[in-house]
């Protein structure tokens, strides 16, 4: 009888241990949108520097990074500058990070800027990629002045679940000339973006001026 109780206890413990394991994924997919329009083109090098210093070192094996260029027509597959999923072995993952860093350096050194700024197109493209990866957590980092300037005849409307399960962060939002004169307008622009992404099902909307806060945030939402 005593043995039967002991066996039951062991079985219960095994059941609890099995119950603890879940199907939840802990990998992270990071979509980075880099504005290359005329007003933000000068920030390219700084953006790459932030990615290399604050994003890449804190990525762990299994994480995915997609870098998308924001230009006049961003909803285009050619706008994907880099797409990388880190290998399960840390040493291979390190090599992949170094290769990506070189790729980003090359991207930063490219001259020229687009005439229009199609931010929603890039968001839509990124959300498609992020949805396909299906990571445990998804985050969109937008390096832009957040001034939307679509070419004529272009229509960009988010679906209600466009950004479902995605955290959206506006990074290093550059103040334009007219923003200095009218900070309220600048804030209203950011507020309208917040409203828009939240309406598209985003989990939250954040803005970071200090890039050093990014690693903590990324590990927090992982």
């Amino acid at each position: 009888m005593k043995r039967a109780w002991q066996a039951l206890l062991v079985l219960a413990l095994i059941a609890i241990a099995l119950g603890c394991s879940s199907d939840r994924r802990y990998d992270q997919a990071i979509g980075i949108l880099i504005d290359t329009s005329g007003t933000y083109a000068d920030q390219k090098a700084e953006t790459v520097r932030v990615i290399k210093r604050e994003v890449l070192p804190n990525m762990v094996p299994g994480d995915t990074l997609i870098v998308i260029r924001i230009d006049s027509e961003s909803y285009d597959k050619d706008n994907v500058e880099a797409l990388l999923t880190l290998d399960n072995r840390p040493s291979y993952a390190n090599a992949q990070k170094l290769a990506l860093a070189r790729q980003l350096d090359k991207f930063a050194s490219e001259k020229g800027g687009s005439s229009h700024t199609d931010i929603p197109g890039a968001i839509m493209l990124a959300s498609e990629y992020l949805g396909e990866i299906g990571s445990g957590s998804r985050v969109l980092l937008i390096f832009s002045d957040m001034e939307e300037d679509l070419p004529k005849g272009t229509s960009r409307d988010f679906a209600e679940d466009e950004l479902e399960g995605t955290h959206v962060v506006a990074m290093n939002v550059k103040r334009l000339k007219h923003d200095s004169a009218d900070p309220i307008g600048f804030r209203a622009r950011l507020a309208s973006w917040e409203k828009r992404v939240m309406k598209a099902g985003a989990l939250d909307w954040r803005t970071f001026m200090d890039a050093a806060k990014l690693p903590d945030y990324l590990s927090e939402i992982r």
Binding site: A17, C20, S21, S22, R24, Y26, D27, V60, P61, G62, D63, L86, N88, R89, P90, S91, A93
Partner: peptide, 15 residues
């Protein structure tokens, strides 16, 4: 150990 086993996988929330 992350070099020997799949580093991305988790059991019960732990790598």
């Amino acid at each position: 150990m992350s070099e020997l086993v799949p580093a991305g996988s988790r059991i019960g929330g732990f790598p």
